[in-house]
Amino acid sequence: MGRNRWNLPDLGFGIGLRTVHYSYILANHPPIDWFEILSENYMDTGGRPLYVLDQVAERYPVVLHGVSMSVGSTDPLNLDYLKKLKALADRTRAHWVSDHLCWTGVSGINVHDLLPMPYTDESLRYTIDRVKAVSEILESPLVLENPSTYLEFGNSTWSEVDFLSTLAQEADCGILLDVNNVYVSCFNHGLDPESFIDRVPADRVVQYHLAGHTHKGTHILDTHSDHVIDEVWSLYRRSCQRTGGVATLLEWDENIPSFEVVHAEALKARRHRGLPEPDHTRAYGT
């Protein structure tokens, strides 16, 4: 079991459920520990996506991960969205529900991006109240991820990590620590990623994200389009020493390779946590 304050389970090493892998998963039932589900892709469909999700949730542990809660937006919370999210969590028996510390739009518009917050006292107070309200609706602690960011607001008076940590403590929510996002944002803002990792309250970390990115020279984009780089693995090991290791998820969203390649990348995390290598021969029957 994990060591987070809610005793939420260490689900092992999973990947995100993606359309290109549906047929493979249904046909082969690969020996993967768990799947992360993109909530919005399944909230309004009665077609194949929901059929596949039901099959997956029947066989594997799942966690819901969203991109449109917009918990930092100054628009009212979308209660219709939250109601559907809760219903999906119940349907799939999701272990937890996560989204991002961000806003995605205002004035009724959705930009469909994880937009950065100004890290001010006003933002913090506001977001604490919103997170508490969401957790109450979901009847479980919301888990919030640190997004990759490409700009900083001049009026921020908090660092991102202190803002996130204080928010998690004050709103009593969990943290999905995206180690790649820590690396990306710290590069983009000229900050020290190890310091970020060391300041995250370990007992709040419920889950890790790992992913590849695209280095543009002047900045890094969080594209989930490649293998995890060594520096990110190093940060992951550093954080695991503090948390004891929690559920770990490999994201791959662009140029998605075969299921086996994505799963193999996720399983590298076992080695970085000092766990034995899995038996691939047995795992894939080859």
């Binding site: 469909h112 991006d113 490409y150 700009l151 001049g154 983009n188 803002h189 002047t218 900045h219 984009l221």
Partner: peptide, 27 residues
């Protein structure tokens, strides 16, 4: 320029421009 801090490598326009470019590309 005071609202959006420049980075070591990008000015304020470049930084907001990343979000602008990603918006249209995503949609």
């Amino acid at each position: 320029p005071r609202l959006i801090r420049p980075s070591r490598t990008l000015d304020s326009f470049d930084r907001i421009g990343i979000y602008r470019g990603m918006y249209l590309a995503r949609l």
